[in-house]
Each structure stands twice: as structure tokens, then as C-alpha cells.
Computed example of a mutant assay.
Amino acid sequence: MRYSIRYSVLDLAPINEGQSASDSFKHSVDLAKHTEKWGYHRFWLAEHHNMPGIASAATSVLIGHIAQVTSSIRVGSGGIMLPNHSPLVIAEQFGTLESLFPGRIDLGLGRAPGTDQMTAQALRRGNRIGGQDFPELLTELRSYFNPSIEPEYRKVRAFPGEGLDIPIWLLGSSDFSARLSAELGLPFAFASHFSPENTVPALRLYKDHFTPSNKLDKPYAMVGVNIIVADTDKEADFLSSSLVRSFLNLIRNKPSKLQPPVEEIRESIQPHEETVLERQLGSSIIGSPETVKEKLLDFIKKTEADEIIVHTQIYDHAARLRSFELTADILNEINNIG
């Protein structure tokens, strides 16, 4: 079987311990420039709030910054948490981005808050913080780009925005967005990097129930996965301890900046924490190029993904760049199989 897997970047703009958001943005710019050169298809940024270790809260602003310093890689959101925002504002923001960088902007949408409930309340200033109104918000947003979708919103128009063909993706970690994106004929991105157990069922549901649309004639699924590659399995495992520490601090309700790697991280983890970590990070692919190639090929076969979006949380910026470079090499090798 011959593969043709696109590969992309999911960047949370991590803030390292001892550094600032300004340092994080410099690293994101450098990462975007390098991954564009290495053949990555998209560079997506994710909306999070009240997280001391993540600098991508003003996601649309950062997308514009990354698009400005690159020339060909697609840049977008992975994702904008739509219930946090007015759909009109998002239409105007992404209409502006698409007008500035034609043909390069993606709008990935999620229905989770991207934060804790108290912060969600502060963001939304209302009682509807569960995401139940996501389908209605999505219809409104799409109507600002194409008023024929729902004429009810015709009296309020998005300039810039109206008439622009900006790809809209639905993001999910369960079957809700899988079902909705299938129904609407939209591309779907699944967050296997923190919800591995639901990956295959959600992708199967999406593909089995997909209805062709004027945007997409067949299902297109992208899967997020944690990948950390180094010269040896031991080095990659050491580097991955920063990712483990981040999730561990979240489990302990002590979110922090990205911590440096440590030896023997597992010795400090309680059994119940280990269970949660496995549930969230179980699909992570960590190791030498040989190890990662074998595991990634198996992951692609199992998920039948059309595209892989790579999340690589490494404290040392040079090691992070090296991991992305090696991952691109591995995916090119996989695409040349057969």
C-alpha cells in the first residue's frame, strides 16, 4: 500500500520555566519557518486560557504573526473555541486574516472552553458554558461567510469575511464533532494527543456517516498525536518527561510553565495518576527514528488518517526543532513505502 500522508504542526506556544511569552512567540516563529522548509502542510495554534505554560490565548493575533513570517505553509486554529466568542467577531477576524494572506488560512473550531469553568464564565459572561449551543453558533458563523446557509443573519454582515472561502474544520475528542462534521460534510480533526481511547470509534463514525458537500466530496480526517523523536529511545524518553510533567501538574490542579526534563519521572507518579496519564497520553509516539517509524506506521494503519498533526512538547528548543525535522523525514519515508 502506498501512503500519501500530509503532516502538520500543532503548536500551543509553550512557555518554558524561566522564560516569558515573548520567548515563546520567538520559538513559534522559528518553528514555523523551519517546519515550512521541512514540508509541513499546516501550522495550527490552539486557544487556551488561564494556563501559565501556554501563550496562544489571543489565537487570531498569533496566527497573523506566524502567517506574516512564512510564505507557503497554511496557518490556522487548532482550534478557536467557538462558544467563547461572538461568531461575528470570529468571522471578521478570520475574514481579515484570509484577506491579508489569501489561500493560507484555516479555521478549526472546538466546542470546549479550552480552560476551567471559572475562566470560561469570565470569557463568556453568561450561563451557557457547556457548549450545547455549538451547532447554532457554527451555523451563524458559516452564514457570515456564506449568507445562503441561513438567511436569518443576512441583516448583519461580516466585512471582511462575506464571500471568502475559508476552510472550516471541526475539532473533537469525542463523537459529537465527528457526527456533526460528517453531517455537514466538513473536514474533521481528532485530538488523539490527549484522548486516545476515542480515536478509532470517532473516526469510524465520521467516515461511515459522512455526507458529501460543496466543500468536500469525501471524508477527510486529520489526527493529532504527540511525537517526540531523538537519536536514541533513551534520549527521547528523557525529553518526553516535560510533557508528562505538564499533564501531571494539570492532574494535580497545579498548572505550570513547561518544566525541564528529569530522569526517572515515573518514580514520582502515584498509581491513580499513572492511570489518568495513560488514558490521556496513551497514543504518544516516543523514541528513536526507527522506533517512531514503526509505531507511527502502525498508528496510521489503525486510524486510516489522511493527515497527521504533530504536537511536540519539548523544553529545549533545539531538541524540539530536531524532533520535528526527524518526524518529517520519517513521514516522507512512510510515504515512499510501496
Rank of each mutant, 00 (worst) to 15 (best):
D329M: 11
I330T: 00
S242N: 02
P255W: 00
Q259G: 08
P212D: 06
N214K: 11
I314T: 01
H272A: 12
I286S: 09
F299E: 02
E264W: 11
T211Y: 13
H317L: 01
H272P: 02
E267S: 15
G282E: 02
K302S: 04
Q280K: 15
V229S: 08
L277G: 03
S241W: 10
R266P: 07
L296M: 09
G282F: 04
R279A: 14
A230T: 10
E235R: 15
E294C: 08
R266W: 15
E307W: 01
E294A: 11
I314N: 08
K302G: 03
Y315D: 06
D298H: 11
L250K: 09
D329H: 09
I300D: 03
R266I: 08
I286R: 09
E267H: 14
N226Q: 03
I227D: 05
R266D: 14
A236Q: 04
R252G: 08
P271C: 07
S241P: 06
K302N: 04
E235A: 10
L248F: 01
S288N: 10
L239W: 03
P255I: 03
K215L: 10
I337T: 15
H272E: 13
R245I: 13
H311I: 03
D217S: 15
N214S: 13
N249S: 01
Q280G: 13
K215F: 10
R322I: 12
S284H: 00
